[in-house]
Simulated scan of single mutants.
Amino acid sequence: MQFRTRAIHVGNEPCPQTGAVVPPIYLASTFVQHEAGVWREFDYSRSGNPTRSCFEETIAHLEGGYGAMAFGTGMAATSCVMAMLKSGDHVLAGSDIYGGTYRLLHKISNRAGIETTLADSTNLKAFAAAIKRNTKLVWIESPGNPQMSITDIAACAKIAHDAGALLGIDSTFATPVLTRPIELGADIVMHSATKYIGGHSDVMGGVLVANTEQLYKDLYFVANATGGIMSPFESYLCSRGLKTLELRVREQSKTAMLLAEWLESHPRVTKVRYPGLKSNPGHELASRQMDGGFGAMMSFDIDGDFNETKRVVGATKLFRLAVSLGAVESLIEQPASMSHASYDAADRAKHGITDGMIRLSVGLEAFEDLRDDLAQAIG
């Protein structure tokens, strides 16, 4: 079956008792057992819940993984991966990553004696050179946040595996519609389900997909022990979101392409970062690695300082000034003061997060209306 068909039917079998087309939401926190010490499929909702399992089955199938587990947020999912590490381990992460992941690695994981190195994952020679003897996890994003860099996932998988490490990837921007990292050698795929999977700015969630049974069991042990699970209602919303995921992502990607081309010709725009543009250094790789589209996220720089950039992002009428992304409504933000404010100032400068950078999440509005909104805001 094709992707959109599987997104609708896998994990969404009609209720066997009533015939309901949409599986019911199971709010129960605990489940009656037939015999002491002999467990049924579900016993306690932290360990497993029928509604959550429906969502997990669907996303695992779409990603081509062995199994999935759903969390209350994307950061809870990422934290589960980091919690598998121990004191003395080393994480090699790409330099173009979400600010929350940067904060987790540099200001939380370091307290447990876990060392982190950031390196440019688009420079494979330099990235491989940053591997250490104690590297246990390589963590990348593609497209990256907020530079929209494109990383060769298959090459990074080889780098990680040659070092005896796992490759984990935050694939939130791409979604399984455009990129399926497990097919390219990744071990763990993470999505902030708050974004495209939910798709309507009304749900918080995260998900991990593991490529093997043993890795799934290892991650599940941590998830069950720490308890940052997704609730039944959010699981239902994410299952519903998956059913329209492909349609939304492909339409949003088309509009994003048009906006990127328009921005590239704007006299006040000094740089546009979007992998669909032929001028983008990652365009050729993205054309091979992404399936029929380049996503709906982009960033660009204007010819103004920090305060002028703040003025522009606050002047739009359709683009909402807000963090997050991936929903039906378009969002705009200034990474230096918002999504990546948790970066140390020196690291922001080092990794190209300029005061003049603006990040867009393109929604489902008409291109012409979004273009006109940006035009009046930029001036």
Rank of each mutant, 00 (worst) to 15 (best):
A163V: 08
G164C: 11
G164I: 15
G164R: 11
G164P: 03
G164E: 06
G164F: 12
A165V: 05
A165R: 07
A165N: 07
L166T: 03
L166K: 01
L166Q: 03
L167R: 10
L167K: 04
L167G: 08
L167M: 13
G168W: 02
I169A: 11
I169L: 01
I169K: 04
D170F: 12
D170A: 05
D170Y: 02
T172K: 11
T172W: 00
T172I: 11
T172R: 11
F173S: 12
F173P: 06
F173Q: 13
F173K: 14
A174P: 02
A174N: 02
A174I: 00
T175R: 03
T175C: 05
T175D: 04
T175L: 10
P176G: 11
P176R: 04
V177P: 09
V177C: 05
V177D: 09
V177H: 12
V177N: 01
L178Y: 10
L178W: 06
L178T: 01
L178N: 07
T179K: 07
R180E: 10
R180K: 04
R180L: 11
P181H: 04
P181Q: 05
P181R: 01
P181E: 11
P181K: 01
I182Y: 07
I182V: 09
I182P: 00
I182A: 10
E183N: 13
E183W: 09
L184C: 06
L184I: 04
L184Q: 12
G185M: 09
G185S: 04
G185D: 09
A186H: 00
D187M: 09
D187I: 03
D187F: 07
D187L: 01
D187Y: 04
D187A: 03
M190F: 09
M190S: 14
H191M: 12
H191S: 12
S192M: 12
S192C: 08
S192G: 11
S192Y: 15
A193V: 08
A193F: 10
A193D: 04
A193H: 09
T194H: 13
K195N: 10
K195T: 15
Y196G: 13
Y196Q: 14
Y196H: 12
I197S: 14
I197E: 10
I197Y: 12
G198H: 08
G198K: 07
G199N: 06
G199D: 08
